[in-house]
């Protein structure tokens, strides 16, 4: 268990670095957006402002999540009991089995949903249909790549 905890501590440190770097980048982007140095490309002023607000809100959520993640990770790194508790929670095999099953089911729903969207969208908007085809192809590519990767690893 000690060896696993040591490795987990290392991964938490890496995760904290990732959170911190992305947090700084996002705050810079948000500042640039507030001072209108960068702005979303929209010909319509009203849409531009709306989209800007949406992106700002999304970024703010990520900032809060990152800060919470950093605080949680720091707490676990300094307290062995907390670290063990967090390790057990994240590595619990039943939780992992649930996640795996959720992923498999969600993938089926996504593929079927996209197929429907392609067919139905085709009657109303070819753009929507083409976007859905792109998403479907991307999803299939990811699934095939992951199957090859894990097939070689297991």
């Amino acid at each position: 268990m000690e060896k696993e905890l040591k490795l987990y501590k290392k991964s938490l440190r890496l995760q904290t670095v990732f959170y911190s770097v992305s947090l700084v980048l996002l705050i810079i982007m948000m500042a640039l957006s507030v001072f209108e140095v960068i702005r979303p490309v929209f010909p319509d002023e009203r849409w531009q402002s709306m989209w800007n607000g949406f992106l700002f809100g999304l970024s703010a959520v990520y900032v809060v999540v990152s800060i919470l993640g950093i605080v949680k990770n720091r707490k676990a790194q300094q307290n062995e009991a907390e670290l063990k508790k967090m390790y057990i929670q994240t590595h619990d095999e039943r939780e992992q089995a649930i996640s795996r099953r959720c992923g498999q089911t969600a993938l089926i729903f996504e593929l079927v949903g996209l197929l429907f969207a392609i067919v139905i969208g085709g009657f109303f908007s070819p753009v929507v249909s083409f976007v859905c085809i792109g998403c479907l192809l991307y999803l299939c590519l990811v699934v095939v790549s992951l199957r090859i990767y894990f097939g070689k690893r297991m």
Binding site: M1, Y87, I88, Q89, H91, D92, E93, R94, E95
Partner: peptide, 13 residues
Amino acid sequence: AEAVGTTRQTITS
């Protein structure tokens, strides 16, 4: 659960 490194919910299940 703590002794075997899992959660209480897993032991229950």
